[in-house]
Simulated scan of single mutants.
Amino acid sequence: MRKLSFEQITAENVGILINDIPAAKHVEDTVIEHKGVVFALKDGVKYIAASVMIFDMNTDILTVAMRKLYLSDLFVCDNAEHGIDGMMLEYTADKAKNMGFELITVQVSTDDLRTIKFYCSQGFDKIVKVNISGKYLVLQRDLNVKLTCCGSTV
C-alpha cells in the first residue's frame, strides 16, 4: 500500500516535481519568483499531482479585496488512479481557505467539456466571465460552501 502525502513545492524540490511531472515545467518560475504557491501529492515514491495557485493577477482587487485566488494549473500524471485530480483540488481549496481566501477561480477552454464538467462537479458552480473570442470561461467556487458527495459532506 502506498502512502500518499501532500507537500508545498519549494525551490529545493521543484526540480524533482518537474522530473516526475514534465508538464509542470513552467511552475519553476512561480516558485522561484514567489508568484504563487505550488502544492503536490506524492505517492511515497514520486509526485503524481500538483496544483498552482497564483496570488498576483495584476490587480489587488482580484486577490486581496475580493479574497479571491486563481487556480492556474492542476496537473495529474497519466497513470494516476481515478480521483487523484479531485483529491489534489480539495487539498488546494482547503489550503486556500486556511490562508483566508473565500473564492477560487479557474479558467477553462470552452472546447474542453470534460474539464468544465470536472470543475463543475468540484463546486465551481458560477461562471464569472465568458470570453467567446478567446474561447474560455472563468469558473468560480465559494470556499465557504460545503460540498456533498455520495451522501457525505466534504
Rank of each mutant, 00 (worst) to 15 (best):
H26C: 04
L62R: 11
I61P: 00
H26F: 11
V38G: 04
P22W: 06
R67A: 14
M53S: 07
F55M: 12
V45F: 05
I18C: 05
A49K: 01
N19Q: 15
E12I: 11
K42Y: 05
F39C: 05
V37G: 01
Y70H: 13
D43H: 03
Y47P: 03
A50K: 04
V27I: 13
M57V: 15
L62N: 14
M53F: 06
K35F: 11
T63Q: 11
K42T: 08
K42Q: 10
G36P: 03
D73H: 13
A40Y: 03
S51L: 06
V45Y: 07
K68F: 02
I18H: 00
T63P: 00
Y47K: 07
K42C: 15
A49R: 01
V14E: 01
G44I: 08
L17E: 00
S72P: 02
I61E: 14
H34Q: 14
V52G: 00
Y47W: 08
K46E: 10
A49H: 03
A24Y: 05
V38E: 03
T30Y: 11
T59W: 10
G36K: 04
V52Q: 12
T59E: 13
L69D: 02
V38I: 15
K35E: 13
Y70S: 09
L17T: 04
A23P: 07
M57S: 12
E12P: 03
A40Q: 04
F75K: 02
A23G: 06
T30H: 10
K68H: 10
D20R: 09
K25F: 08
A24E: 04
L62F: 15
K35Y: 12
A50N: 05
L69Q: 02
A24W: 04
H26L: 09
V31D: 02
A50I: 07
K25P: 00
L41M: 15
N58I: 13
F55L: 13
L62P: 00
I54Y: 01
M66K: 13
R67H: 14
N19F: 07
E12V: 12
Y70T: 03
Y47V: 07
V31L: 05
K35C: 10
I18N: 01
K35L: 15
K68V: 01
L62M: 14
V64T: 14
A65Y: 14
L17R: 00
Y47A: 09
L71P: 03
L69Y: 00
V52I: 08
I16E: 12
F39N: 11
V38P: 02
L71C: 09
R67Q: 15
H34W: 05
G15E: 10
I18E: 00
I54W: 03
Y47C: 07
S51F: 04
A40M: 07
A65H: 15
D29V: 09
I18L: 01
V31T: 06
L17Q: 01
T63I: 05
V45M: 06
I54L: 15
V45S: 11
I61S: 12
V52T: 09
V38L: 08
N19S: 14
